[in-house]
Design a protein around this nucleic acid. Structure first.
Length: 365
RNA sequence: UGGGGUAUCGCCAAGCGGUAAGGCACGGGACUUUGACUCCCGCAUCGUAGGUUCAAAUCCUGCUACCCCAG
């Protein structure tokens, strides 16, 4: 009987994933990962509660369960880079790294040591063999598709993974959990950084990044406020600026970071022109198939997402050396350095790259 | 010091005798496995002390503060 190690977070999705595998006759072993040790703002250690949920669910399903600790790996391979990026004034996405380095690497290796052929997670994505090679497809529930977070995986990682709920709708997953009597069937979807959880983001960052106050200025150079450190803001952000009543009365948004002078450039209006770009330069391109879908220097038409859950955007991409040039058909709002651009061809996720620069539209030449 | 003006929520700002618009900020919630965006809800008795009136943020008087002009 084939053994599968089910990664279980204590949430509905991974629980139902394990349940489905069990029903399909696999030798399922549930494993809970603890990768972060800290209480939340209320002094509650959510991972303890989640671990209890996992034990509960495993008991109901009738599978053994274990817990494994990757705190060190998470800190070394994910969180340290996360902080480095912030220190550079960028806005990283820790979860794409977490998937590549932890869930589909450290955890996968651990599962193999347990004698498992494969691992499962509760991600809403599908895989399929095409020409005897695994491809990553969007989840069937277009509203919950999580392929964006898995673009850094490679074929050999995909080949070792199963995503039992990828073909289902979220509503079906919940219904199945309820019918099976899983205690977590009504549990709220978790959000926030994976393993760290939902928290006051600014306060959280303040534990790791030094304050470096400076001016907030308009593009014209007028000082309109103070910031507590450029790292605490991201492009297109509105909340937290604390500027009210100035100018034409509209809301203020972060337009740019001037790291050299420690100045946050802000402007009014959700649709401020400086927030829009259609030419983006990215690097660290990774392709699930191992190589880009097009030769170097040749443009390629596909769709892209510049943030999770963004509707597909029509783009042309062109690789030149280490740089990936992206040209979007439509203007894109607040494309942010450090964030990921993920590429698709139909339902298939091809890979992605990390944004370095978004060139404002009005600088077109 | 003399003359004039203004004082309404943290900020901007309606109101002109009939019982406090709106925007921004902020707080809460929804959405969301990153960060954001978005959406919904909440949020003042009118500088102060008196007076007139059935009724005052709205009229009158004193006080206080700030602004402008003058010299």
């Amino acid at each position: 009987m084939e053994r599968i190690v089910a990664g279980m977070s204590g949430g509905v999705d991974s629980s139902v994933a394990a349940l489905l595998l069990k029903q399909q006759g696999y030798d399922v072993v549930g494993v809970f990962m603890k990768n972060w040790d800290e209480k939340d703002e209320d002094g509650v250690c959510t991972s303890t509660a989640d671990w209890e949920d996992v034990q509960d669910v495993c008991h109901t399903i009738g599978i053994p369960c274990y817990s494994v600790n990757f705190e060190k790996e998470y800190m070394d391979r994910v969180f340290s880079r996360f902080l480095d990026e912030y220190k550079k004034g960028r806005t990283p996405n820790p979860d794409v790294l977490c998937n590549r380095e932890i869930k589909f690497k450290a955890f996968l290796e651990f599962a193999e040591k347990l004698g498992a052929e494969k691992i499962s997670t509760g991600h809403f994505v599908r895989t399929e063999m095409r020409e005897s090679r695994p491809v990553l497809l969007r989840g069937a529930d277009t509203n919950k598709d999580q392929s964006y977070f898995l673009y850094m995986l490679k074929e050999r990682q995909l080949a070792k993974a199963v995503f039992p709920v990828g073909g289902m709708l979220k509503s079906q997953v919940r219904a199945m959990a309820r019918d099976a009597g899983l205690s977590v069937s009504g549990k709220k979807d978790s959000t926030g950084i994976c393993f760290i959880g939902e928290r006051n983001f600014r306060a959280f960052l303040q534990n790791y990044l030094p304050a470096m106050p400076g001016d907030m200025r308009t593009e014209a150079g007028e000082t309109v406020g103070r910031h507590i450190g450029l790292a605490y803001y991201t492009l297109g952000q509105r909340k937290g600026l604390g500027i009210g009543g100035r100018g034409d009365g509209r809301s203020w948004f972060v337009l740019q970071k001037d790291l050299k002078n420690n100045i946050l450039i802000v402007g009014q209006g959700e649709d401020h022109p400086s927030l829009y770009s259609n030419r983006i330069e990215a690097s660290e391109a990774t392709w699930i198939a191992g190589a880009a879908p097009m030769p170097e220097g040749v443009p390629f038409r596909c769709t892209a997402k510049f943030r999770y859950r963004q509707p597909d955007q029509q783009v042309s991409i062109l690789q030149s050396g280490d740089t990936l040039f992206i040209e979007a058909d439509e203007p894109q709002r607040a494309v942010t350095p450090g964030q990921s651009a993920v590429f698709y061809q139909g339902d298939r996720c091809l890979g992605g790259a990390i944004v370095d620069t978004a060139i404002p539209i009005r600088e077109k030449r």
